[in-house]
Design a binder for these strands. Structure first.
Lengths: 226, 226
DNA sequence: TTAATTTGTAATATTTCTGTAACATTAAGA
DNA sequence: TCTTAATGTTACAGAAATATTACAAATTAA
């Protein structure tokens, strides 16, 4: 999991292309084909970044943008605008209304991907960082290795993703549902108690002799990385 | 594959000369005749080095340069500027704007080639190195030989390329898809499980008595050179 | 051309991981 | 303190991923 991205775009083909490729890169992606519903879903989804089409059937991209900026919970949500060629003049207006970057259609996926990473690197480095560190715990994404106090730890794929998830937001408590949504592949149905077992496995692996427990149970709420 | 080079240059004859010769030396080369398109293609191509003409019909070389330096994904892309004689005064300006070296036209291919290698040697030695070395493993590109602890090892062509690939980025985990994309000739369709078999063959060849395993399996992710 | 090597795939074996259920323990409120 | 709900722990069977093998087709060398 590298982070969550939401897409509001009325061309299904674009959504499909972008969503598929972003998921391949490890992002969790959700999308909507129109503005009003998109806004609602977005706020539920809590993405790390929004890809927003300029021209939508109902709301204009700029209205969505303004709405988001007015909402204190999403004031600083990074937004990348997708504009069609020839909307050049609007660009400046777009940037003024709080857009972080824009990409003109048609674009290659690589171009978009590069922009996304650049924006995320500025706004929320943890999302794209290669090394996630918390106290004496270190996770290396490209090497797929985990260390506790410089001692390497072996984790199964699920435990790895679970730890990666916690490391992108240490101290924050996540409910079992939230964990399921982001750590497990979409549309997989597992018992919520299954998470307890994985938490146990993760704890067992990362708790080394003499070092303190790193995963905190918050009764009736979920778990957090201390 | 020694690395990828992109050329932005409006004289087709120069592109032809340079591209052909670079390809003969084992580089993968792509090019564009104008600035704006070049920029886009370049970002898609992800080269290890850029040859950039100073004077272009649309964008000036220096603008391209600045654009690239602003893009965090290409901040450190080495650039060699191609300038016409008499543009001497501009040279300093060019170097200030983040150019790594420049070559004045007309130039001989050998001169250019030497500069390219010098710049790559500084910025990304693995790309041009003739010998790739990792621990007690050594691969000689020109002689096409592989040694483990000074003992020569025979590899088939595919295993050779596979090992070369791993050696350019030790420790990094590659998915089967990534391996396919880079190690196999373009647009060849092979089962992703086929890679397992080649990994096995490679392992069998490079694992000599008493020495440790060098290829790591990362379940659900791929393989890496330890 | 023939022989030798290399390649890709399919079939099978082996290993590792996952989810669940069952039972144990703990924490919080009555 | 007792009760109950939530979490911890364990073991295990089935699933999923990888390893291994064998073989036929393709390529290269002789």
């Amino acid at each position: 999991m590298k982070g969550k991205i939401f897409i509001i775009e009325d061309e299904a083909s674009i959504i499909q292309l972008v969503q598929h490729n972003l998921e391949k890169e490890g992002f969790v992606v959700s999308s909507s084909l129109n503005g009003n519903e998109g806004l609602k879903e977005l706020k539920k989804f809590e993405p790390n970044l929004l890809l927003l089409d300029w021209m939508l059937p109902d709301l204009s991209g700029i209205d969505i943008c303004k709405n988001i900026r007015r909402d204190s919970n999403f004031k600083s949500l990074p937004i990348i605008m997708l504009t069609a060629k020839g909307e050049e003049e609007d660009k400046i207006k777009g940037l003024e209304s709080g857009v972080d970057d824009y990409v003109t259609k048609p674009f290659s996926f690589n171009e978009l991907s590069a922009r996304i990473k650049a924006v995320l690197r500025r706004s929320d480095p943890k999302v794209v960082a290669n090394e996630l560190i918390f106290e004496d715990l270190k996770l290396d994404r490209t090497e797929k290795r985990v260390f506790r106090s410089d001692k390497e730890i072996q984790l199964g794929p699920t435990e790895f993703r679970l730890l990666e998830f916690f490391l992108t937001n240490p101290k924050r408590v996540y409910s079992r549902d939230q964990i399921l949504e982001t750590v497990w592949p979409n549309n997989v149905n597992v018992e919520s108690r299954t998470i307890d077992v994985h938490i146990r496995r993760l704890r067992q692996s990362i708790n080394i002799e003499g070092k303190k427990e790193l995963i905190r149970t918050v009764r009736a709420s979920g778990y957090s990385l201390i």
